[in-house]
Design a protein around this nucleic acid. Structure first.
Lengths: 236, 236
DNA sequence: CGCGGGGTTGAACATTCTCAAGAACTGTGG
DNA sequence: CCACAGTTCTTGAGAATGTTCAACCCCGCG
C-alpha cells in the first residue's frame, strides 16, 4: 500500500479538462478553479490484489474513489457468512457513510486485482459539499441509484427462487451487449456470485448446468457464457 | 384524498419555531425566513386507511413527508410477490427518487391508517437543495442510513436462516425499551412481517410458537410480545 | 507430472413452503 | 355488552427447494 500525493493531477488533460477519469462521475461539472481545490485534498493509495482496503468496524473517515482496478465490497452476517454487495469499477466510490457522521465501516472492501484508489478525508469532503451544492446533488443521485439497487436486491432475494435470481442476473449482465449471441463474462467467482445471490456455489453450478441442458445458455470455461435464449431464462 | 394548501403553516408554533413537527427532521436547522420559503411550496394531502399514495411505475415527482399517520412502502417482485420495505412514521419521507431525475416510483406506498402527508414538488425541492446545501446534507445523511439498512437487510435475508431473522427482528424492536421485561408491540401484521423478513406468515407463526415454547418470549394477543430472554433469542 | 484452487456432481438431510382446515382475534352493529 | 362476521393467525402434513459434505474433476502452473 503505497501513498502518493495528488496522483490525479499528474495525469494529462482529458478532453481539455483537468479532471482525471476516475473523478469524472462526481466532479465533472466543476470549473477548473474548483477542480484545483478538489485536487488539493485528493490523495492516492495503491493496493495489491487481495489486500483489504477497509474492514467493518474500522473508523470510516474518507471517501474512496476507484482510480483503476476493481474492488469488492462485502458484508459479514452475524453468523459470519459473507455476502457480496457489489463490485466497484473505476469511477465508482465508496466510504459514503464517512461523509456525514463519525462512524464505522459496515462492510469490507477488498482489491480484486491491483488497484489504485483516490481518497478524500471527511473534513475535506464536507467542506467541498458545503461549498459546492452540485457535488452533493451528484452524490445524492448516486446514493439514490444504490439505494434502489439495494432494495431491489433485498426484494429479489426475499421473494424469488434461486433459479430466477440466477437467470435474472445473467440477463442483467447482457445490458449493452448486442441481443444476438450475447456473450457475457461473469464478473466474479462462483463463490462470490453465490453469496451475491444469497445461495451456495454448488447451487449456482447446478442451475447453470440446468440452464445449459435446457438450451438457454452455453458455458465456455468458467466465466464465459453465451446467452442463447433470453426469454427462456426470464420464464424460469 | 383531500388537498389543502400549506397545512403546516396553519399549525401553532412549536417550541417557538414555525416548523411543524413533521418537517423537523429535514428542515429544523433553517432560519425563519428560509422556513417561510419552504412553507411556500409545501402542500398537504390526506389519505384514508388503505389508500394507495403512489404505485410503482407512476411518475415520481414529489418528495413526501409523513405529517401524521403511518405508511407502508412495499415492492412487488417480478413474480408478483410483495415485500415490505419499511414503515414510515411521522417525520419520515419518501419519494426520494423523484429528487434527482425524471423517474418512476419503484415501490408502492399505502396508508396503513388515516394519514396526512406533506409534499414538495421536484422543481421546488431542487431549488431548495441548491439554495440551502444543508438540506442536501440532511437528506444525504438520511439516505446513508437507509442504504445501510437496505444492504444489511439484503445480507440478513441472504445469509441467515429464518429463525435468526425473526429473533433479530424481535430484539431490534426492543431498542429504547428497558431491558427488563421488554414488552414490544409488533409494528405490522404477520403477513407484512413475513414479507419483510422474506418468509411466509405460517413460518413466522411457527417460529414464534417455538420461541415461546423455548421460553424466550411470551405472546399476548396478536401483536404484543414480552421478551423474556434476549440472549436466548440471539443464540437461535 | 503432481499440486492446488476453483468448479462440479451426488446423495442424504434440513429447512421452509404450500395448501387446507380450524382457531382466535378485531371491530361492528345490535 | 354481547354476538357475529370477516380477518388474521395458527397448526398440520406432505412436498418442494436448497444446503451440506464429500468425492471428484478440470486446468493452469511450477
Amino acid at each position: 500500500m503505497v501513498e502518493e500525493k495528488n496522483i490525479c493531477s499528474h495525469h494529462p488533460n482529458i478532453n481539455g479538462s483537468r479532471a482525471c477519469v476516475s473523478l469524472v462521475p462526481i466532479f465533472n461539472h466543476l470549473t477548473e478553479e474548483q477542480m484545483d481545490e478538489v485536487m488539493e485534498v485528493v490523495r492516492s493509495v495503491a493496493f495489491k490484489k487481495g489486500e483489504i482496503i477497509y474492514r467493518a468496524g474500522e473508523a470510516a473517515n474518507s471517501l474512496y474513489i476507484i482510480h483503476h482496478g476493481q474492488v469488492k465490497i462485502y458484508r459479514l452476517s452475524e453468523s459470519g457468512k459473507e455476502q457480496m454487495i457489489r463490485i466497484l469499477q473505476p469511477g465508482d466510490f465508496t466510504g459514503e457513510f464517512a461523509l456525514f457522521k463519525q462512524s464505522e465501516h459496515q462492510a469490507y472492501a477488498e482489491a480484486l486485482i491491483d488497484t489504485q484508489i483516490c481518497f478524500i478525508r471527511r473534513e475535506d469532503i464536507q467542506k467541498l459539499l458545503s461549498a459546492y451544492p452540485a457535488i452533493a446533488l451528484k452524490i445524492l443521485s448516486e446514493f439514490s441509484d444504490r439505494l434502489e439497487h439495494a432494495e431491489k436486491q433485498a426484494t429479489t432475494i426475499a421473494t424469488e427462487k434461486v433459479d430466477t435470481r440466477i437467470a435474472t442476473f445473467l440477463v442483467e449482465c447482457i445490458e449493452d451487449v448486442e441481443q444476438e449471441k450475447a456473450h457475457i463474462v461473469l464478473p466474479m467467482s462462483r463463490k462470490d456470485l453465490a453469496s451475491y445471490l444469497g445461495t451456495t456455489p454448488e447451487t449456482v453450478s447446478r442451475k447453470l448446468t440446468e440452464f445449459e441442458d435446457a438450451g438457454f445458455i452455453k458455458q465456455n470455461g468458467q466465466r464465459n457464457i453465451q446467452i442463447l435464449d433470453v426469454d427462456g431464462l426470464l420464464l424460469v
